[in-house]
């Protein structure tokens, strides 16, 4: 499920950004998002397809908790929710009907990477990606992750580019063939668990 890997990589970037925000030096792998915390914010995702000028644009809200997973709630142009947990991916349609999309074990390796990342273990990412980071003025930073040879994610993702300051502000997911997703993250905040009820009903309370 390399598509799932994309989403989890996105989570990695986001969480790495949080870690960077909490660090004195904004390098991925700094002080981590605590196991008793979660991150939430808004997103705008532009899906750029080669040969077409106008991207597919969606907006919504997300919640990520290290031990529980990610809630990706699209509000425009169509309402829908994606729930990603260590045991799999589910979707809720506009009517609230839930459907199982994939088994979680197929991206367990990526989920493991998330755990490593949350633990501040940058070496876990280095095993599968070539990473270059750059420090910018005003506490801003950027990072480029290129899947290493043999990483199955490479079939779906050619490159990941992320930038931010206190939080990750933008992620570009490049795909083979020239297509890419551009995801802007806004209004982010870190809060202590438990998760709010709306998220908790899908992710649990947020703890192990």
């Amino acid at each position: 499920m390399r598509n799932l890997a994309c989403l989890l990589l996105l989570m990695l970037i986001v969480v790495a950004g949080v870690n960077a925000a909490h660090a004195e030096s904004p390098q991925p792998g700094g002080p981590r998002l605590g196991a008793d915390q979660y991150l939430q914010g808004d997103f705008v995702m532009e899906r750029h397809l080669a040969g077409f000028e106008k991207p597919l644009t969606s907006r919504g809200h997300f919640v990520v908790a290290p031990a529980s997973g990610l809630l990706w709630q699209t509000q425009e142009p169509f309402a829908g929710t994606t729930i990603l947990t260590p045991s799999g991916i589910d979707r809720l349609d506009a009517g609230g009907a839930r459907s199982h999309v994939a088994s979680g074990d197929q991206f367990a390796a990526i989920a493991r990477l998330i755990a490593d990342m949350l633990a501040g273990d940058i070496a876990a990412l280095k095993d599968g990606f070539a990473i270059s980071t750059r420090q910018q003025e005003g506490g801003r930073w950027s990072a480029v992750l290129t899947p290493a040879s043999g990483n199955p994610v490479a079939a779906a993702v050619s490159q990941l580019e992320a930038e931010g300051g206190q939080f990750v502000s933008q992620v570009k997911v490049g795909r083979p063939g020239g297509d890419f997703d551009l995801i802007a993250l806004e209004n982010q905040s870190v809060a202590a668990l438990p998760l709010p009820d709306e998220a908790a009903q899908f992710l649990g309370k947020g703890s192990n």
Partner: peptide
């Protein structure tokens, strides 16, 4: 239902959509 599912998938971040 399948049409609605397609729309949702189209804007789901985990789905690597290409032309």
């Amino acid at each position: 239902a399948l049409y609605q599912r397609a729309l949702q998938t189209l804007f789901s971040p985990e789905m690597p959509v290409s032309a």
